[in-house]
């Protein structure tokens, strides 16, 4: 492993450490954006939501920095075996976290549009769903920091819970819209928020899969999928 023996070229170690640092910082910012956007939504905090939209720029910047770093590292050091896996994983995880940041930003952007969401009952499903999702992101990043394949595998298993949450949110919102056509605008935005959360959960799973791959050199098996929410309601 890179950090147990160290490389002959000390600068290589430093490059790898810095790369991991960048990924972790980016992850921390994305985590903050996810929990912050849901909090802003529930509290109807327009300023907080605007702040999250602003902060997303920094996440994009760090992602670009990671990409430059990885290209330079591959060109100069020609990493092999676990080093190569680690560098590739960092590159892919950077891309995934960037997407998570975008989803969080998208949720924050919807906050001013969901002004009358207080009347939409299924709103109460969002905070517990968001807490499951941010736990997943947190654990996936912890697994990355500790190079821990066991935690990574657990994160992948949690994804089912998020999918279940999304299904129940979907059904609850559909019922709500049928009964209260005046709130359809808000309810639709909430549906997108739930979908964003569900996508963040998927990306956290992908991060965990990359962590597992970087740590063990093996791919995690295909996850079993739950029933499709659309298909279920058509029955």
């Amino acid at each position: 492993m890179a950090n147990s023996y160290g490389h002959t070229v000390k600068a290589f170690d430093e490059d790898l450490t810095q790369l991991r640092g960048l990924v972790a910082e980016m992850g921390g910012r994305a985590e903050n954006a996810i929990s912050g956007s849901i909090e802003a939504l529930v509290r109807r905090d327009l300023e907080g939501a605007a702040g999250i939209v602003q902060e997303d720029r920094r996440i994009d910047e760090i992602n670009a920095e990671i990409e430059r770093h990885v290209v330079r590292l591959i060109a100069l050091r020609a990493p092999l075996a676990d080093d190569l896996r680690e560098v590739l994983a960092a590159l892919k995880i950077g891309g995934l976290i960037e997407r998570m940041g975008d989803y969080a930003k998208n949720i924050a952007k919807r906050v001013p549009l969901i002004a009358e969401a207080a009347n939409v009952e299924p709103l109460s499903i969002l905070p517990p769903m968001a807490s499951v999702v941010s736990n997943m992101v947190h654990d996936a990043l912890d697994a990355f920091a500790a190079r821990d394949p066991v935690t990574a595998q657990q994160v992948c298993e949690t994804d089912r819970t998020v999918d279940d949450f999304y299904d129940s949110m979907f059904r609850a919102l559909l019922t709500h819209m049928m009964e209260n056509p005046t709130t359809i605008t808000s309810a639709t935005h909430l549906l997108f928020v739930a979908k964003n959360l569900e996508r963040i959960g998927d990306h956290a799973t992908n991060v965990a899969e990359m962590v597992y791959f970087a740590a063990t050199g093996e791919q995690l098996g295909e996850r079993p999928r739950g029933a499709d929410a659309l298909a279920a309601t058509q029955r």
Binding site: T17, R20, G21, A24, E25, G28, E55, A145
Partner: peptide, 9 residues
């Protein structure tokens, strides 16, 4: 890297 240890922005 310190940012790996403490992931807070």
């Amino acid at each position: 890297d310190a940012r790996v240890a403490l992931r807070h922005p």
